[in-house]
Design a protein around this nucleic acid. Sequence first.
DNA 1: GAACGAAACGGAGGCTACCTCCACTTACCG
DNA 2: CGGTAAGTGGAGGTAGCCTCCGTTTCGTTC
Lengths: 213, 213
Amino acid sequence: MHDTETRPRRADALRNRQRLLDAARAAFAEHGTGASLEDVARRAGVGVGTLYRHFPHRDDLVEALVRGGVDGLVELSARLAADLDRHKDEDEDEDGTGAGGSGGGGNRDADAFAALRTWLQALVRHALAYRGLAEQLVTAAGSGNRLDSACHDTADAGRMLFERARAAGRIRPDVQVEDAIDLATAVAWAVELTGRDDPDRLLDVVLDGLRPR
Amino acid sequence: MHDTETRPRRADALRNRQRLLDAARAAFAEHGTGASLEDVARRAGVGVGTLYRHFPHRDDLVEALVRGGVDGLVELSARLAADLDRHKDEDEDEDGTGAGGSGGGGNRDADAFAALRTWLQALVRHALAYRGLAEQLVTAAGSGNRLDSACHDTADAGRMLFERARAAGRIRPDVQVEDAIDLATAVAWAVELTGRDDPDRLLDVVLDGLRPR
DNA sequence: GAACGAAACGGAGGCTACCTCCACTTACCG
DNA sequence: CGGTAAGTGGAGGTAGCCTCCGTTTCGTTC
């Protein structure tokens, strides 16, 4: 194994890192993820060199700001999946049929899709946190970036719900998680650029499209 | 009325304009619509000043390059609509029922939707002509740009087919043409950035979502 | 075919942003 | 304290944007 011996960062470094994050949050909120990095450094009261030391690429900065949101999505997915299991157990307790197959149980199947829906809505909201973020996210996916790993986490979280919905027979057979996530992100992008007010209507169209006919 | 007395452009101006368009086509093909305008001027063997004289904004250049495609979309829409009318007449000749209402005639209704599908596929292909074009297009829509008018033309062309499909009962009541066009463009965007090979599969998901349940 | 005015040209120059590099400062440890 | 690795800052090179205006060229008129 590699020597991952990591001694604690110096106090000033920690302080500056935090200042940079705060400054970036403000700058991105104002100008989108494309905001000037020199401006970020200026707001943080720090030289550009320091910024690039802490965050070599813009994506690293974006990742740090978005990390919390990603964790939230992962957590949400876990919670929704757990709810699904709980309801499933209750169903079995209540009527004892071991019917199981992908054809029948209306309520539970509907819930699997509803859970996916809830999660994808959250994903869209997440991608709308900053202007330009949606683009940043799709671009990062598969680029080995720091942001890329965030995308992986998101994709895994989504997959869990997606496969349950699929097992419940609520997903077109020719569609993959990646399709669902990319479409949701694309919806966020469209909403962002056209200044629409309700992301969910567009997303509902996509969601309907995910279902089999 | 205004004095729109327009005397013919000078020969060198015409020549340079053409060179700029050729250069831009090449540069955009290579680097997307975000290509360096100085590079475009260089390729055209012309000073930047000349470029900006002919095309004050990047959008003007994009619009000029894309005009042909837009006209194609308008034409396609007209042709598809005409075909729809022709088949409708034939149906009436064949079985004489004036049933008309939006509920029944399977074939004709399906055709109205198929026509919309064909057209939206063409729209996606159009938005994929250059990297970055999809974004350019949604951004321009509603900005009074030169490109904006191209978007209007496109939207009008789409509306014609869309409303026929709606009249045939093949469209969810809560969806508008703009939604369909924006979603198609968003699909183009996603395809562009994720490097997918077949735009039509993603688009089919969206198309299914446009239909009522 | 020379001369003239309008039209068109070109590119220097002033911005802003990106990112690197390295001489300098500073926190931490002994 | 003093040594040193860790951290800092910002000058400077590159590139792209767009404007401005002195110079060139076209087309016309006599």
